[in-house]
Design a protein around this nucleic acid. Structure first.
Length: 235
DNA sequence: AGGCCGATCCTCT
DNA sequence: GAGGATCGGCCTA
C-alpha cells in the first residue's frame, strides 16, 4: 500500500488552487495580445470531488467585428446572438458553445464590454486530477500516467472540455477571474521561453491568419508536423 | 417551418 | 487520409 493513499485530498471546497488568480486587465487587451500570454497559465476547476487543472499549451485568437479587418471565422462576426452574447460582455468570462451535436469548446472573452474578441483554448497539459480527467474522457485510469496516452486527455478543444467536464449549460458566462468562481485562470509562475505561431485549425475563412499560438515541441499540443510554424522568443 | 453546417473526435483503411 | 455521428443555432422563406 502506498503512502499517498493515506494522504487523501480533502473535500474540493477547501482544496487550494495552484498559483494566483490573474487580474481582469490581463484580458482587457486584443485577442492577439492575450492569446500568447495565456500560454503557460493554468485553468483550474474546483469541484465537489476535488480540483481538476491543466496548463494551457495551445490557443487561438478570434477577433471581434470591430477589428480591421473583421474576422470572418469568429462567432461574433455577424454580431451578437443569444449564443455568443457572452463575447460582447466584459473580459475574462467563459464562452462555451456546443459543436457537432456532441462536443463543447471553451473560449475566454477579451477586451472591454462591447468588443467581442476571444481566445479559444485548444490544448492543456494535465496537471491535477489526472485519473479523473482520464475517466471523464472514457479512458482507462492508466492513461493518466502513460506518456503515449497522456496527450489524449486534454489535447484538443473538445477533449479538454470533456476531460474537465465543462458544458455550455453549466459554464457559459462564468467569470474566470473571480476568487469565488469554480473555474479560474491562474498564474503559477511557469515561465515561457518561446511561442510558435501558425494559422488556425478547422476553419473555412481567413485560413491564413497567423492567430494560433502554442508552446513549440510540447507533447500536448494538438496536430503534427503539418502544424509547425514560426517560433518567436518571448520577453 | 425547414435546411444547412460547424473553432471536433474517433474509427477504419 | 477519409467519412460518419449528431443537434443547436442561425438564416431564408
Amino acid at each position: 500500500m502506498e503512502k499517498s493513499a493515506q494522504i487523501k485530498v480533502k473535500g474540493g471546497a477547501t482544496e487550494r488552487l495552484p498559483g494566483r488568480l490573474l487580474k481582469r486587465a490581463f484580458f482587457e487587451a486584443s485577442p492577439e495580445q492575450v492569446a500568447p500570454r495565456l500560454l503557460g497559465k493554468v485553468l483550474a476547476y474546483r469541484t465537489a470531488a476535488g480540483v481538476l487543472a491543466g496548463r494551457i499549451v495551445e490557443v487561438e485568437a478570434y477577433l471581434g467585428p470591430h477589428s480591421d479587418p473583421p474576422d470572418p471565422a469568429a462567432h461574433s462576426y455577424r454580431g451578437a446572438t443569444p449564443r455568443n452574447q457572452v463575447l460582447f460582455g466584459p473580459a475574462g468570462h467563459a464562452y462555451v458553445y456546443s459543436i457537432y451535436g456532441r462536443y463543447f469548446c471553451m473560449n475566454i472573452s477579451c477586451e472591454v464590454k462591447g468588443k467581442a474578441g476571444c481566445v479559444l483554448l485548444r490544448a492543456l497539459e494535465p496537471l491535477i486530477g489526472m485519473k479523473r480527467l482520464a475517466r471523464n474522457r472514457g479512458l482507462a485510469a492508466g492513461a493518466a500516467t502513460d506518456v503515449k496516452l497522456g496527450r489524449q486527455l486534454t489535447s484538443g478543444p473538445s477533449r479538454l472540455c470533456q476531460a474537465l467536464g465543462l458544458t455550455r449549460a453549466a459554464h457559459n458566462g462564468v467569470d474566470l477571474i473571480d476568487s469565488h468562481s469554480p473555474l479560474q485562470v491562474r498564474d503559477d509562475g511557469y515561465a515561457i521561453d518561446e511561442v510558435m505561431v501558425t494559422p488556425r485549425i478547422g476553419i473555412r475563412a481567413a485560413v491564413d491568419w497567423p492567430l494560433r499560438f502554442a508552446l513549440p515541441g510540447h507533447p500536448c499540443v494538438s496536430g503534427g508536423k503539418r502544424l509547425r510554424g514560426s517560433v518567436h522568443r518571448v520577453e
